[in-house]
Write a protein that binds this DNA or RNA. Sequence first.
DNA 1: ACAAACAGGACCGGAGGGGTCCGCTTAGTC
DNA 2: GACTAAGCGGACCCCTCCGGTCCTGTTTGT
Lengths: 160, 160
Amino acid sequence: MLRLSKLTDYAVVVLVRLARCDEVQTAPGIATATGIPEPTVSKVLKALASGGLVVSQRGARGGYRLMRSLNEVAVSAVITAIDGPIALTACVEGSVGGCEAENLCPVRGRWDPVNEAIQSALSAITLADMQEAAMVRSFPLVLEPARLESSRLDPTRAVS
Amino acid sequence: MLRLSKLTDYAVVVLVRLARCDEVQTAPGIATATGIPEPTVSKVLKALASGGLVVSQRGARGGYRLMRSLNEVAVSAVITAIDGPIALTACVEGSVGGCEAENLCPVRGRWDPVNEAIQSALSAITLADMQEAAMVRSFPLVLEPARLESSRLDPTRAVS
DNA sequence: ACAAACAGGACCGGAGGGGTCCGCTTAGTC
DNA sequence: GACTAAGCGGACCCCTCCGGTCCTGTTTGT
Ligand code: FES
Ligand code: FES
């Protein structure tokens, strides 16, 4: 299902919340505002801070503050900050030793183009797009979508 | 890391192998040819058959055969057949009850555009592209890549 | 009738991720 | 200068999911 981690979802929630004012906001405050348990918020914010998406202010009256505005933050940046670099399979470039029978394998590193395509798509969407998406419902997908060739199979057609 | 399941990787291997001749090929045969353990090959082929990517011939002298040629099969079709419909988070359309505090949550279903973008990117790449990719190494990414804006952060720059 | 192959499950073990907690450091405040 | 409110870094556990295997039908050529 290509599921991305739930922490990334939380990260987006936190970032959007963080964008509502440019004052510093404490992790407990964000926790109560969003309903996400406080230790989890803390963990997410720590990851985002080390990823350079937010800046932290230590000490009393400390908290977190956005580093860039939402339309400067790509979704791929959030995913990278939380889940590490995007690597679809264990056999992408790097991590050479991970695969058994890699001399026989006929797809040595062929996922790389797919990987890059996804990264491109994710880099083209910013968090501002995402929050806009929920307001203008059923909007027609900002970036050029590379010609989605409508649904080859899957009779259930669960679009998600 | 946006990891996709290893079974999908195997599926691509199997499909590419299956394309080498249009005769039916048995699951044990493919297993020995690719080095993938036989029960796993069987499972993958079953999923692909139910997804409509291969057709099966039962009985003695049975086996599997490709239904479409490789350049007619999008990567998204393979992923959908193996891993089910692509759903980045638990909170995409459908599966309404899965999320706690969904009335508070400010990103209700905002992953949908991201989801569709990925699906578009994945639908634009066919298996033929993938096998071509490994031959013409470092090829410049067939589909228009929506302007990947080069690497905001991550000093390590692990591209994969 | 036999054998070879697929079909459709059940089943199990390990890895990974969500979630929590604790001790330490920093910096405002009184 | 002491206190306190926050972040920082890491260790930790538990649960879920996935990879991998196996077994019992069912089909079909020989
Ligand atoms: S599956 Fe790893 S190199 Fe092919
Ligand atoms: S996180 Fe599930 S609806 Fe927002």
